[in-house]
């Protein structure tokens, strides 16, 4: 299990959003920290195959990120995602189960399991447009793990969640990281501090620091802020 990026660059007109980034992600949770505009979302969208890099290569084990095989093992939660307003939570998940290749019977069972995981059993048959921001985010996380992904890319997954829900999701992400390559982006240091095995910090489209943060290294928050001075 290795997601590799080699000299990845994305340029929009005159702006270089991601500048020659090379990284290798293995099983476990990798936290991606960076201020707004640092290039986190662009990097994640390229790793998810949504954006074509201007230059550079991405591969997962022997798979090309262009392949259906990669999409079969990928779970992705974008920073902002939409939904069809007439769908209930269950219909939304059933739709994505079908798109991820699950037959109806397996999809029904999987949906029930996912609603339990994200704590939305009671609201499963309500229209998503009536959900609160946190509930919508939980459905988003549920759709990202429908196919039991080997690679899970989560862009700000805890945005909009209340403190209790955030703790719950940190635990869930930690569990998922035991068996998957998880890349978790946020600008909330405490979210990452508790769950990430490894950290990557981005600034101006480049990696400014990466490694394992130990408690003995001091306060991560202070170190993080120092990078942006």
């Amino acid at each position: 299990m290795e997601l590799k990026a080699d000299r990845l660059t994305k340029q929009y007109d005159n702006k270089i959003a991601v500048d020659r980034i090379s990284l290798s992600l293995e099983k476990g949770v990798t936290g991606l920290l960076g201020a707004n505009g640092a290039g986190k979302t662009t990097l994640m969208r390229m790793l998810s195959g949504l954006l074509t890099p201007t230059s550079g290569e991405i591969s997962y084990d022997d798979m090309s990120v262009k392949s259906e095989d990669y999409r079969n093992v990928l779970g992705y939660l974008p920073q902002d995602f939409g939904y069809y307003p007439e769908f209930t939570g269950r219909e939304f998940l059933m739709y994505f189960c079908a798109l991820k290749g699950l037959d109806k019977k397996s999809a029904k069972a999987r949906c029930a399991e996912l609603f339990e995981i994200v704590g939305l059993e009671e609201a499963a048959d309500k229209k998503i447009r009536k959900y609160s921001g946190g509930m919508k985010q939980r459905v988003g996380i549920a759709q990202a793990i429908i196919n039991r992904p080997e690679v899970l890319i989560l862009d700000e997954p805890t945005a909009g969640l209340d403190p209790k829900e955030r703790v719950r999701f940190r635990d869930l992400i930690g569990e998922l990281g035991k068996e998957s390559v998880v890349l978790l982006s946020t600008h909330i240091v405490s979210d990452i501090e508790h769950v990430a095995d490894r950290l990557i910090m981005m600034k101006d489209g480049q990696i400014c620091w990466q490694g394992v943060w130990k408690e003995s290294d001091g306060s991560l928050e202070e170190f993080y802020l120092k990078q942006y001075e």
Binding site: P78, G82, Y83, Y84, G101
Partner: peptide, 22 residues
């Protein structure tokens, strides 16, 4: 273009079929 209007295309793009397929 419904997926685009409702912001679902990004989620559809990372499925087995891809947004292009849908």
């Amino acid at each position: 273009f419904r997926s685009e209007y409702h912001g679902v295309s990004e989620l559809e793009a990372v499925t087995k079929f891809s947004a292009k397929g849908v």
